[in-house]
């Protein structure tokens, strides 16, 4: 028996918005410690890794490890039926071929349940090595979304260049060039407004706008985003999900032959 009840059901709705453009389907690996999801996008350029810890749920029970293959467009249709203040429960029997979503309104006057068929997915699981990154940049998530959106008008790629002075995002194309420089903030009233750069060595890497823009669909999950870079390895774009976990996107750089 698997059962996970999330009082802040809106978080699950936001998680779905954050992955559904990138992935058509994904396996939810449910275990005693919580729920994990790892999946590559269709073109195998990026990887999504979602972690929801059991402690973040109001009620969590997982008697046996369970892999639930879900069609995300179907799951998204179902989660759209939940109101933002609904409590959401996911449940499944051991070895079941369906998962049930239960939505409870805060005062319990409306309770809906939706049963969805599971699919068998034969997805590759990638090993992500523990890495010490050369540059770790924290910035407001809305600022990052704005930068990706603005620079996408100029070209298909964004160059992210991190030095001890700060971080520079650049794009170039037919209409011209664009550069956005963010300096590390000295003092801020709110921590979520801060730009922080932790640099061991300077790094410059180039990434496809298309994917960066899809990652920014996670912006409503967290006021801050963390970018981690090292030379010639994938960028990590991480959004914390309150006290429950995180979503990380890994994006392979564009590199010269």
């Amino acid at each position: 028996m698997f059962e996970a009840r999330l009082v802040q059901g809106a978080l699950l709705k936001k998680v779905m918005e954050a992955i559904k453009e990138l992935l058509n389907e994904a396996s939810f690996d449910c275990a005693h410690s919580g729920i994990l999801l790892q999946a590559m996008d269709n073109s195998h350029v990026s990887l999504v890794s979602l972690n929801l810890r059991r402690e973040g749920f109001d009620k969590y029970r997982c008697d046996r490890n369970l892999v639930m293959g879900m069609n995300l467009s179907s799951m998204s249709k179902i989660l759209k039926c939940a109101s933002n203040d609904d409590i959401i429960t996911m449940k499944a029997q051991d070895n079941a071929d369906t998962v049930t979503f239960v939505f409870e309104s805060p005062k319990q006057e409306k309770i809906s349940d939706y049963e969805m068929k599971l699919t068998n997915l034969d997805q590759d699981h990638l090993g992500i090595p523990e890495t010490e990154y050369s540059c770790v940049i924290k910035l407001p998530s809305a600022e990052f979304a704005r930068i990706c959106r603005d620079l996408s008008q100029f070209g298909e790629s964004i160059v992210i260049s991190c030095t001890k002075e700060g971080v520079k995002f650049s794009a170039a194309g037919d209409i011209g060039t664009a550069n956005i420089k963010l300096a590390q903030t000295a003092t801020v009233d709110k921590e979520e407004d801060a730009v922080m750069v932790d640099m061991q060595e300077p790094v410059t890497l180039t990434f496809a706008c298309k994917y960066l823009n899809m990652f920014t669909k996670a912006t409503p999950l967290s006021p801050q985003v963390c970018l981690s870079m090292s030379p010639d390895v994938p960028l990590v774009v991480e959004y914390k999900i309150e006290d429950i976990g995180h979503i990380r996107y890994y994006l392979a750089p564009r590199i010269g032959d």
Binding site: M40, S43, H44, V45, S46, L47, D124, H125, L126, G127, I128, P129, S157, T206, A208, V233, P234, Y250, L251, A252, P253, R254, I255, G256, D257
Partner: peptide
């Protein structure tokens, strides 16, 4: 000219 690399070039399939 830059080429887009696939993610499994960096993270091998387990």
């Amino acid at each position: 000219r830059l080429k887009q690399k696939g993610i499994h070039r960096f993270f091998p399939v387990q």
